[in-house]
Lab assay of single mutants.
Amino acid sequence: QEELVKAFKALLKEEKFSSQGEIVAALQEQGFDNINQSKVSRMLTKFGAVRTRNAKMEMVYCLPAELGV
């Protein structure tokens, strides 16, 4: 569980995922086979993730800066 949270936060820091499906796929690539869209959705809510525009003006998920991840 701890490893999943770390990987999840690291992915969001990249600010390149525009959908929950993309986050699920990226986590599965890292070996988290039991991850699915509903789990990702709950984690996004739990950590207060928001959708914002990145440098390329794409809408992407990211974590609020005050979490200091």
Rank of each mutant, 00 (worst) to 15 (best):
K56F: 09
E15V: 05
N54E: 02
P64Q: 05
V50W: 05
G48E: 06
P64D: 04
K39T: 14
P64C: 12
V50P: 02
V60H: 02
Q20T: 13
E66Q: 08
S19C: 04
E29S: 12
V24N: 02
E2M: 12
L67N: 15
G48L: 04
L67R: 08
S19P: 01
Q20R: 14
Q28Y: 09
A10G: 10
G31R: 03
R42V: 12
E58S: 04
E3M: 12
Q1P: 10
E15W: 06
I23Y: 02
G21S: 14
S41N: 11
Q20K: 14
K6W: 09
E2Y: 10
T45G: 07
E14V: 06
L12C: 04
L63I: 08
F47T: 06
A55L: 09
F32K: 00
V69M: 07
A49T: 03
G21E: 14
S19H: 11
Q1A: 10
E22I: 03
E14Y: 06
I35L: 07
A65E: 14
M43K: 00
E14F: 06
N36F: 04
L12Y: 01
F47H: 09
A65M: 10
Q30R: 09
A49K: 02
C62M: 12
L63C: 11
K6I: 13
N54T: 04
N34K: 12
L27S: 00
I23H: 00
R42S: 14
G48N: 09
G48V: 02
V24W: 04
Q30I: 10
G31Y: 02
L44N: 00
G48A: 04
Q20G: 08
A26M: 06
G48S: 05
T45F: 08
E29F: 08
M57T: 04
L12P: 00
F47W: 07
V50Y: 11
E58T: 05
N34H: 14
F47R: 01
Q30L: 14
I23G: 01
K39D: 15
K6C: 15
G68N: 09
Y61W: 15
V60E: 02
T45L: 11
M57C: 03
L11A: 06
Q28K: 15
R51Q: 10
A26Q: 09
E15D: 04
F8A: 01
E3W: 08
N54S: 04
Q37L: 13
F32V: 02
E22T: 07
K16F: 05
N34Y: 13
K46F: 14
I35W: 03
L4K: 00
S38I: 10
T52K: 15
E3F: 10
E58V: 10
I35Q: 03
V24E: 05
Q20V: 14
V24A: 09
A7G: 03
M43E: 01
F47P: 00
V5T: 10
K46H: 14
A26E: 09
E2H: 10
L11C: 04
M57W: 09
R53I: 15
A10S: 12
Q37F: 09
R53A: 13
E3I: 12
N54R: 02
G31W: 01
L67E: 14
C62K: 11
F47N: 04
Q1V: 11
I23S: 00
L27W: 01
L11Q: 01
V5D: 14
M43G: 01
D33F: 13
V69R: 03
Q30W: 08
L67K: 14
I35N: 00
R51W: 12
E29Y: 10
A26V: 08
K56I: 05
V50C: 09
E66Y: 07
A55G: 09
K39S: 14
K9L: 15
M43Q: 01
S19D: 08
G31V: 01
I35P: 01
E58Q: 12
L67W: 04
A26T: 06
N34T: 10
N54G: 05
V60Q: 02
F47V: 11
Y61N: 01
E22G: 09
A49S: 04
S19K: 08
E14W: 07
Q20D: 08
E2V: 08
Q28I: 14
A49F: 04
M59R: 03
V69N: 15
K16S: 09
M57D: 15
V50L: 09
Q28G: 05
E2P: 10
E22M: 09
